[in-house]
Nucleic acid binder design. Structure first.
Lengths: 244, 244
DNA sequence: CTCGAAGGAATTGCATGCAACTTGAATGTG
DNA sequence: CACATTCAAGTTGCATGCAATTCCTTCGAG
């Protein structure tokens, strides 16, 4: 609906128009029919995690529908699913808004994360599937290179990939699902801890300690190191959140 | 829609008609407008967990819609949400079916469960919120009484309540969510382990050991006992699944 | 000036219609 | 007889329309 017939002078785009294009960029190109809802769900999730849809922003079905150039139905379903994941909060007949995390939520999150990442490291070490150690080392090498260039955004992406590789190596679908949800929650936090002075080098060392234990199939050490890694991550996170 | 004008002789109900009534019973009575989808989602979830919708059963949107006397829209949304939870599997343009758990899934589930229940017990013990110990003891007493009557179904319900109370006492929203998903997965398993000879008494003793540690605010012991409880539960579960 | 109530605009909630896709069976061909 | 091909029935996927509900503004009374 709502065409570009805005009363503004041609050549000047309204704010909503720009926002709409940014959102549309998150849609997968090859959007075949039959997966529109999944695409919209993923796009909105990424938009929220990237901060394009900031916390406390109101999400209107029709607005999002015109932005994505789809009908309200897939948007509506996507909002329900994201509400189940805890990313948005819905209020009946009024709208949905991006949920924000309290400090208590962050603490609770890291408590669970320490446990689950530790479990993932232990399982991965015990199984030690073909190629896992190489993959971990490869990602960590890429991280070292990115750290040298001070490319924090890239570093952050690689860090996520490292943890994903580790939990995939654990080969436990439930653990995978829960750690995926944890990742979504962590990515909602503003900024990253990898920009903190000296943290990047620490992370590299901690990752190496875990990878070493995995290579030696030492489950206990892998768990201990992974938990220590997460405790340290929590400390830095709190410093970043509180200290500014 | 679809009235009772079935071509069968009056007085004889078709099988689908009976099934529809059983499903409808899961809907909350005071279904106010604005919560139809949530009601349908919950009803379908409970129906699946109770085995009314058995694994490998095909779930047709229109069929369920007429059964619940709603339109296809809320049913459709419910199916998507249940698919996210892993309870059903959808195939595009063909239908959704109730997912079944493989033996490997069960093992993976209990591995994660051991960790999370242990964490919940530790956190609950450290916090030891007002009234928690009393609630645990109360539920356990009710379980003892039910065990005496050999009321297995009631015993199972109380057992779920005990674990829910413990994790609520941990006061960690992420832990609560994940253990809720674990509970859904466990409830999908056929039968219960509490019918196994002698298991009910064991469970009572193990619960008491955890509750005692919680009372004494001994986090380490609580975690150790809870993990032992889950390991034993897994053993019995495997015996029930394999031994018949 | 403050507080309360009523009305209207905006938004979501659900129902339904049509198009696209999948599947299986029937048919024709080698 | 085996196999590929076509076609038709059935199902879901998405778009849209209408009704119910909410919230905010405005108006009136104290």
């Amino acid at each position: 609906m709502q065409e570009d017939k805005a009363p503004t002078t041609s050549g000047i785009r309204s704010q909503s128009e720009e926002s709409a294009e940014r959102l549309r960029a998150y849609l997968h190109q090859g959007a075949v029919r039959g997966r529109t809802t999944d695409d919209v769900t993923g796009a909105m999730r990424e938009a929220i995690l990237d901060g394009v849809l900031p916390p406390s922003a109101w999400l209107r079905e029709s607005e999002l529908a015109t932005a994505f150039k789809v009908s309200r139905t897939p948007v509506r379903e996507a909002l329900k699913r994201l509400a189940d994941e805890g990313l948005v909060i819905k209020t009946a007949h009024h709208g949905a808004m991006v949920a924000s995390l309290s400090l208590e939520d962050v603490l609770a999150l890291y408590v669970v994360r320490e446990d689950l990442e530790g479990l993932a490291a232990r399982l991965a070490a015990v199984r030690c599937p073909e190629g896992l150690v190489e993959e971990l080392d490869e990602i960590n090498a890429a991280m070292r290179e990115a750290a040298g260039r001070e490319a924090v955004a890239e570093l952050s992406k690689l860090n996520l990939a490292w943890h994903r590789a580790l939990r995939t190596g654990a080969a436990n679908p439930y653990l995978e699902r829960f750690l995926g949800q944890v990742e979504h929650a962590v990515r909602r936090l503003p900024a990253t801890t990898l920009g903190h002075p000296g943290r990047a080098e620490e992370v590299l060392a901690e990752h190496e300690a875990v990878a070493r234990a995995v290579r030696e199939r030492d489950g206990e050490t892998a768990e201990r190191e992974a938990r220590a890694h997460m405790r340290r991550a929590r400390e830095i996170r709190l410093a970043v959140l509180l200290g500014g």
